[in-house]
Design a protein around this nucleic acid. Structure first.
Lengths: 336, 336
DNA sequence: ATGAAAGCGCTAACAT
DNA sequence: ATGTTAGCGCTTTCAT
């Protein structure tokens, strides 16, 4: 592949002149510019960005490290990140951690070596002090969806607690008094916030606080397995609150396998909506997060940091959520 | 951020010695190694990969350029690519073209400038001679899912024609004789192959070849709009073949809005299954592609090329498909 | 309006 | 076992 010297030689100029043409910077006479341009065409010259990056210490690349791109929620976030990055001349590298701190750490070092300009991180675990690595390297980063140790970092997340609280209150209004919650790992702050929001609603209603809370993973198996357990418990809950979309799917599968109808036999509500693009007939009553917006806002914040235009001090952006009532939940029979 | 010189100075050695320690290459005494390692720790030194890449002309980065990561099919492909790349020490940059040749071309140049080692490309249009750019730059690439002009390139795709043919034959066996096909753009070879497979089955059955084929986009609107059209046509088709998942969703929504039941009033079959992870109760009779496998195989092929271990000459990998019969299709009333 | 030199961080090739 | 030199492709700085 040709380099800037080859182009310069062919055009009969110095490399720096070619550089000026490429970057539209400095004075170049029209005649010279044309000679250079035709040399570029002739050689199909593509400038090597590694050189300038090595000098300028900017790669115009952002790293997006998340749990699993296969989850439609994260896919949508990723698309928001990608679009916003592109609009600003940045590109992104993606890494899936599958919630593993080891994978996360591998990715972070690799991406640091690649000299990405900044990180968008969905932390695999709030226990891992992943922020240390950034702070030591002085690389800007924004935390998405969750919290980590310390409080001196930029973050964007949904109002998990408020959303869970609202959704629970909605169930309570329908007359449900025994609600089972199935959620993710204890070291996931989003899982904790959603349980906290649930408990808050329960307490404010003056109800027995001894509700069933099942801690597992944010996946289908957790939803499936705990639902079977829940169905055996007495007295049986009249509603299940799945704190993410995959859990909700698992819950529904378990209920279906047991021959139970939703909402006639039991109500189900969930966190995270499924994108309209892949849903024929939306069914779940949900707390819907603004996934695309989350990616967009986080990226905007990160880029603002990079160009030193962000407000001073750590920013904490809490996105509002929507409650969407659909057919998976109904008034409890016999309730007022 | 510290560089290799800072580490060397602190450890009292030459930069090259630090390099040897980092890369576990060449002779370094245990004493020196330890001194270097503690210097690395003390400075939290992370090697800058740009230097070596500039020298070696390898970035260990692959580019994945596809239509839209938001489509679960592509998400799954992407995950296959990502996992396989990682296993081999590579990482990936993703770009969404939204089927726009301009976006595609922007991405390609940008990624070329970034010196990616190879491309995995889902071409936005078979008319665009996107391969030229690679061939001129001599960058290895593998084409996924579709065909482009020329025949001297590596590719991995599903047996679209065979799959569509099989699926159509299945419908014919159920007694359907009027089948409407809704498909993507004419310049998309997968769309063409699926229609070709359909026509093949029709011809082999000795049926009227004057079937309804609707060319549109691989999205929900196309499915929705053409379904409304189809429902007005007389004689009305008894089955609809949606040639991708988004179209299928659009078809179902249109049918639902018209108060039609599937499969009682009309049968629906589709290309592309929805991932089990996001489906409560699989409903569509489909041609299921091995999406993860497609990403994996393509990446393996690309990496083999990079290390010069691929077979000589262009490779064309055609992945088998599965027909999965579910509840969206049924025997035509009155058929034998 | 154009060019020469130097250096970004690293390592292959060649000493010692 | 350790070090010196040179150069990957580009652009900033300082001439001319």
């Amino acid at each position: 592949m040709p380099n800037i010297h080859d182009v310069a030689k062919l055009a009969g100029v110095a490399p720096i002149t070619v550089s000026r043409v490429i970057n539209n910077k400095g004075y170049v006479s029209d005649k010279t510019r044309q000679r250079v341009e035709s040399a570029i065409d002739e050689l199909a010259y593509v400038p090597n960005a590694l050189g300038p990056s090595l000098r300028s210490k900017r790669t115009m690349t952002l790293a997006l490290v998340l749990s699993d791109i296969t989850n439609p929620f994260w896919t949508t976030v990723a698309r928001g990140v990608e679009d916003t990055a592109n609009e600003n001349g940045y590109h992104i590298i993606i890494g899936n951690t599958d919630e593993s701190p080891e994978k996360q750490s591998d990715y972070l070092t690799f991406m640091l070596q690649k000299q990405v300009d900044g990180f968008l991180l969905v932390p695999a675990s709030s226990n891992v002090t992943s922020s240390d690595i950034f702070q030591r390297q002085r690389v800007p980063f924004v935390v998405l969806d969750r919290e980590i140790q310390g409080n001196d970092y930029d973050s964007v997340r949904s109002d998990s607690q408020g959303g869970a609280c609202k959704l629970t209150k909605y169930l309570l209004e329908l007359g449900h008094k025994r609600i089972a919650v199935i959620t993710g790992r204890q070291d996931n702050s989003a899982a904790r916030d959603r349980v906290r929001g649930f408990m808050q609603a329960i307490e404010e209603a003056g109800l027995d606080e001894d509700q069933q809370v099942y801690w597992g993973e944010f996946n289908q198996e957790t939803g499936y397995d705990f639902t079977r357990l829940i169905l055996q418990s007495r007295p049986q809950p009249t509603a299940i609150f799945a704190t993410n979309n995959f859990i909700a799917i698992g819950v529904m599968r378990a209920l279906r396998d047991q021959g139970l109808r939703v909402p006639e036999d039991i109500s189900v509500v969930a966190f995270d909506d499924l994108p309209a693009a892949i849903t024929i007939d939306p069914f779940f009553t949900v707390v819907s997060q603004h996934a695309y917006e989350m990616g967009k806002r986080a990226t905007e914040l990160l880029i603002a940091r990079l160009v030193d235009e962000a407000p001073e001090g750590p920013q904490e952006i809490i996105l509002p959520i929507d409650i969407i009532v659909r057919r998976s939940s109904s008034r409890l029979l016999g309730a007022p």
